[in-house]
Simulated scan of single mutants.
Amino acid sequence: MDLLMLAFVAVIPVLSVESLLVSGSDVSISASVGEDVTLSCSVDSHIPPEHIEEVSWKKTDEDEDLLVLLYLNNKTLPESSDEQYRDRVEFFTDEIPKGNFSFRLKRVRTEDKGVYMCQVFAGELSFSATVVLERLGFSVSHIMVLILCITASGSALLLCCLIYCRSPNTVKGSTVQRTQ
């Protein structure tokens, strides 16, 4: 009986599967030019954040990938960012121990529109998630300035018309007075 029990235990496999789940945003992110925006990337894993070797954010274009922000061996390396992103991107460092590798993109530009990929590497495991930044438009303050400019231009034009029409010595009026 003991021999039979021993054989039974030997055929039961012990599963030790490590998994790494990375999630971004399910919906596209909208932003206005000049505003700050947060792009989300969360690591849901049994692997502690200090064992995550690398997290890289890249903007994926048709012809090339631009490195936006890099976290390597427990350090953020902003100097490795592509030139157009330097001094405009930052991780939420207090959130990294919780597996949150979201980042803030400051002063959004129209050329920032596109697909961003968060790639996570931990040992032999790797996984990625994407976030789409779209609908870059004008902010409320930009629209208000535009409306103010249009209103001021219209008011100046109206004022010029009123001054011209009320003037007693118009060319037509002075010609009529001389002939009589």
Results as ranks from 00 to 15, higher is better:
M5R: 15
V9A: 15
P13S: 14
L15N: 07
V17S: 10
E18K: 10
L20P: 12
L20H: 04
L21F: 13
L21D: 14
S23L: 11
G24M: 00
G24T: 02
S25Y: 02
D26N: 15
D26V: 06
S28I: 02
V33N: 01
E35I: 03
E35R: 08
D36L: 03
V37Q: 03
V37H: 03
T38M: 03
T38K: 00
S40R: 12
C41Y: 00
C41W: 00
S45A: 14
H46T: 15
I47E: 15
H51T: 12
H51P: 03
H51L: 11
E53M: 02
E54R: 08
E54N: 05
V55Q: 07
V55S: 05
K58L: 12
K59Y: 03
K59P: 12
D61G: 13
E62S: 09
E64L: 01
D65Q: 12
L66F: 04
L67R: 08
L69K: 00
Y71C: 13
N74C: 02
T76F: 07
L77K: 08
S81Q: 04
E83M: 08
Q84T: 03
Y85Q: 08
R86P: 01
R88I: 00
V89M: 08
V89E: 06
V89Q: 00
E90L: 07
T93E: 15
D94K: 14
D94Q: 14
I96H: 11
G99E: 03
F101W: 10
V108A: 05
K113N: 00
K113C: 09
G114Q: 06
G114L: 08
Y116T: 14
Y116N: 13
M117K: 07
M117Y: 01
M117W: 04
C118N: 06
C118A: 01
Q119V: 14
A122F: 07
L125Y: 03
S126E: 01
A129T: 10
T130K: 04
T130E: 07
T130Q: 04
V132Y: 11
L136Y: 11
G137N: 13
F138H: 11
F138T: 12
V140M: 11
M144Y: 10
I147P: 02
I147Q: 14
T151V: 09
A152R: 12
S153K: 12
G154Y: 06
G154V: 10
A156W: 07
A156C: 14
L157A: 09
L158F: 10
L158R: 04
L158P: 04
C161P: 06
C161I: 09
L162T: 07
P168C: 06
P168N: 05
N169F: 15
T170E: 09
V171H: 13
V171C: 09
S174C: 09
T175A: 10
T175N: 12
R178A: 10
T179S: 13
T179M: 13
Q180E: 11
